[in-house]
Amino acid sequence: MKPLITYRFASMLLVLSLGLFGSCQPENSPERKKVAVIISTLNNPWFVVLAQTAADKARALGYEARIFDSQNNTSLEADHFDNVIAAGFDAILFNPTDAEGSVVNAMKAKTAGIPVFCMDREINSTEAATSQILSDNYSGCVAIGKYFVTTMNKKGKYVEILGLVGDNNTWNRSKGFHSVVDFYPGLTMIAQQSADFDRNKAMEVMENMLQAHPDINAVFCGNDAMASGALQALVSAGRNDVKVFGFDGAEDVVNSIKENKVVATGMQFPKVMAETAANFAHEYFNGKTEFPKKMPVAVELVTTKNIDNYIGYGKKD
């Protein structure tokens, strides 16, 4: 459990320190609008980047910004919405915990006249949010699936570690991957289990899968935090023959691809999504009323062949 505590502590410290930095700015002007950044979890560096970029961009545009961590708990997320509405925030940059369960929270804000801009994760409503800026997870995982098939020479046994079962991204990624891989009867998925997008859970899941299925050749993980957890379990077991595929473009996995420890990932662009959401809020404050209900953001396949074009969470400048 120590790594979990250390990981959470580091994430909290980062957010708190950045939050303090933000609070040093003059934010008490009566005209200054307030933007809430409600994030599914800060127990994952990818979401810390998403949250912090959104808050930084909102501040750069002249608004007060505050981050709320839902800890992957829809009830806690509902509390945040209640508090944000009561505190008179003017817009919400929202990374939901659950595609269905979060709709009611977004609707509460809409009823209160507060626009909601979803980032990265989708809610199953085109009415509740003013706009949803979402990674094209399916297409990204189609590309990973094609690379998986060619890398595996169309045969082998593999396992899949899924993200949160209630999140659309989990299934869009899984379906994109299987839309390719399932065409190849030589590739057999022998286990599929959720680890909630969590690194430590994925490590435990991978350890159990290795015990039950020592003959696996590859693992596909629904995000890079889980890929890192799976890699950790494989390294501990001395299994450097198992190919690891992730999704996100997190810094540690980008580095692992450089070191040939991870085969591929799908590069999402959390900074692009966060900045777009903050810009949309800015445009809303300036009177714009028409926004695309959904704005997909392309996901790019990252492998050893093109790794030099990328850094963690995005492209090299």
């Binding site: 199953n124 399916y138 297409s139 379906k175 695309p292 209900k293």
Partner: peptide
Amino acid sequence: NVNEFTNTMHFNNVSA
């Protein structure tokens, strides 16, 4: 248009 679709999974199924 992606905005015709309530759920992106439906949209992805169109590609498939």
